[in-house]
């Protein structure tokens, strides 16, 4: 169990990490999600022992790590651009931690082959890192980190440098490998999908503070406040009577939400033949798997929505709208 208690990190006058606490159980994957510059990488470096704590403590199995230097913590770090050692071959990179532990060469070879197999790159051992694609480099970096059998694996935006289709595929593989090896991991990222796919639990970080944490699906559905909601992809926040109408249209309990706001995902509102709401199309843009609309919705106001690609919608067209309750979140104002 990794325990982070009231950790703060300061650079001069700026507070990069401000009183952050969380727990990470063995075998669990926690993602800290936040916009760039929110302090999440600094938090990761602080856990690794690479930044000095201004206050608070990092404990592993109840033992304070304050006096334990980075190289004795038994962690491993993986960065978005791999940071493979350019002068070493792929196999040498993967076997780095094992050689540090003076494991016999034959055993190192066997273990390296096993790990390269695990990350889907058998027969890459003799290659130089410079000859690999970005995705392959990340796989090697993962193998190198796993070779150390880290007590906690620290991942700094591990997939952010890759293009989208590769990122999606690798996120699934990463989740798979972490679960299969039972690795405890702390992941920081600005990418929702990456956090959502890889992690069991999720925390949201703004301006150095951890504003919300919980099971991934729960955070995804029930953002703690408006800012978190917007960051997690809720496009609109409506209040008052329009909020009540949306909740009712989505089949959600609307009593007792006075004084609250309702955050709406674009995917919560769809054009159908017979929805409870009516609106006028202001603009329509085709995207890969739907048509994205800007609407004036009667009794609600401006809203974004989606329509099936087959729909032919010109500005000015009148449409009926259906609301999915799971795409709405009640947040305090």
């Amino acid at each position: 169990m990794l325990t982070v208690e009231g950790v703060s990190v300061r650079f001069g006058d700026t507070v990069a990490v401000d009183d952050v606490s969380f727990e990470l159980a063995r075998g669990e994957v926690l993602a800290v999600l936040g916009p760039s510059g929110c302090g999440k990488s600094t938090l990761l470096r602080a856990v690794a022992g690479l930044e000095e704590l201004a206050s608070g403590s990092v404990l592993l199995e109840g033992r304070d790590l304050a006096d334990v230097p980075t190289h004795r913590r038994g962690f491993a770090l993986m960065f978005q651009d791999g940071q493979l050692f350019a002068q070493q071959s792929v196999a040498e990179n993967v076997g780095y931690a094992l050689r540090l532990r003076r494991m016999p060469a034959a055993k190192v070879r066997a273990r390296v082959a096993e790990l390269l197999e695990l990350v889907g790159l058998p027969a890459y051992g003799d290659r130089r890192p410079g000859t690999l694609s970005g995705g392959e480099q990340q796989r090697v970096a993962l193998a190198r980190a796993l070779a150390a059998e880290p007590r906690v694996l620290l991942l700094d935006e591990p997939l952010s440098a890759l293009d989208r289709s590769l990122r999606e595929r690798l996120a699934g593989d990463l989740r798979d490998i972490l679960v299969r090896t039972g690795t405890t991991a702390l992941l920081v990222t600005h990418d929702h999908d990456e956090a959502f796919t890889v992690a069991d639990r999720m925390g949201v970080m703004f301006d150095g503070r951890l504003v919300q944490q919980g099971p991934t699906l729960q955070v995804w559905r029930e953002p703690a406040d408006e800012r978190t909601a917007r960051f997690l992809g809720f496009h609109h926040v409506v209040t008052g009577e329009p909020a009540r109408r949306l909740l009712e249209a989505g089949g959600r309990e609307a009593d007792g939400v006075e004084g609250c706001a309702v955050a709406v995902r674009r995917s919560a509102v769809w054009v159908t033949d017979d929805g409870p709401l009516a609106g006028t199309v202001r603009d329509a843009v085709a995207v890969t798997d739907a048509v994205r609309l800007e609407l004036d919705v009667e009794g609600v106001g401006p809203l974004e929505a989606l329509a099936a690609q087959s729909a032919r919608l010109e500005p000015g067209a009148r449409v009926r709208l259906k609301v999915y309750g799971t795409g709405l979140a009640v947040v305090p104002r």
Partner: peptide, 19 residues
């Protein structure tokens, strides 16, 4: 960060410098 990676993997400061 390459040096940070090595440190996290258990290399002492001297080993980080050398390798």
């Amino acid at each position: 960060r390459a040096e940070d990676s090595a440190r996290a993997l258990g290399a002492t400061p001297w080993q980080v410098f050398r390798t």
